[in-house]
């Protein structure tokens, strides 16, 4: 379970302080899919960076299954990220010179999975997102946008993280493909028992989530 309390992040710029995240408090259960919607510059990406341990908050608490993450140092954040956090990006961000399977193997290597289990787990995740056989050997450039995002989802879930952070996962896809990707995300969350936070500005995508949160000027609120 993810519990976030009074999370704050301020950027100090020449133009003045920007309070990107202000007193954010919410929680999400394992297997739950939560949508976070907001306009551009509302603080969505900063919130995701804090929850993904890519950045450290100025203040507040991030509790994941009873472990406090907000005060971890850089090394601790890297270690925890490799084991407990998965990312899905709008631009997929697959490594171009690696095959689909090799991309999925990466987080397993960083999470120090036993070598004997890595390929089996990678193939299992690729099968979960509907990529099997010859396609798993292809490099990203030889896959469609939807297929690349499926690989990205497989990669995000591969190391069995507790938290999946998806930043506009359908932003680069057509509506039909985007719909399928959300279904896959939802299904994977349920199957793997992970909490999925989806940042999106697409209302239809947001409506498919179990819950919907809205962020505006760094302030998060629950939408009924």
């Amino acid at each position: 379970m993810l519990k976030v309390e009074n999370l704050n992040k301020t950027f100090h710029t020449r133009a003045g302080d920007i309070h990107a995240v202000q007193n954010v408090t919410f929680s999400a259960d394992n297997g739950e899919m939560v949508a976070i919607v907001g306009a551009s510059g509302s603080g969505k990406s900063t919130l995701l960076a804090l929850l993904g341990l890519l950045d450290a908050p100025d203040q507040g608490s991030i509790d994941l299954d009873g472990v406090e993450l907000a005060n971890l140092d850089a090394g601790g954040r890297t270690k925890y990220r490799s084991h407990q956090v998965g990312f899905v990006f709008q631009q997929f961000n697959l490594i171009p010179n690696l095959s689909a399977r090799e991309n999925v193997l990466l987080p397993l290597e960083y999470a120090r999975w036993p070598k004997a289990d890595r390929v089996r787990r990678a193939d299992e995740m690729l099968a979960l997102v509907g990529l099997t056989g010859e396609k798993s050997e292809r490099r990203p450039t030889r896959l469609s946008g939807g297929e690349q995002q499926r690989v990205a989802i497989a990669r995000a879930f591969a190391a069995k993280p507790q938290l999946i952070l998806a930043d506009e996962p359908t932003g680069s896809l057509d509506k039909s493909t985007g719909q399928k990707i959300v279904e896959i995300l939802r299904s994977a969350a349920s199957t793997e028992g992970a909490t999925v936070l989806v940042v999106t500005h697409d209302e239809k995508i947001a409506q498919q989530a179990d819950r919907r949160l809205e962020i505006d000027d760094g302030v998060l609120s629950e939408v009924a």
Binding site: G52, T78, R81, H83, N93, I95, L106, P107, Y110
Partner: peptide
């Protein structure tokens, strides 16, 4: 640079 950022996000340590 983006690739390095992605690898770090996936949990790759600097040494790797």
């Amino acid at each position: 640079r983006r690739e390095v950022g992605v690898l770090k996000a996936l949990g790759a340590p600097n040494r790797s």
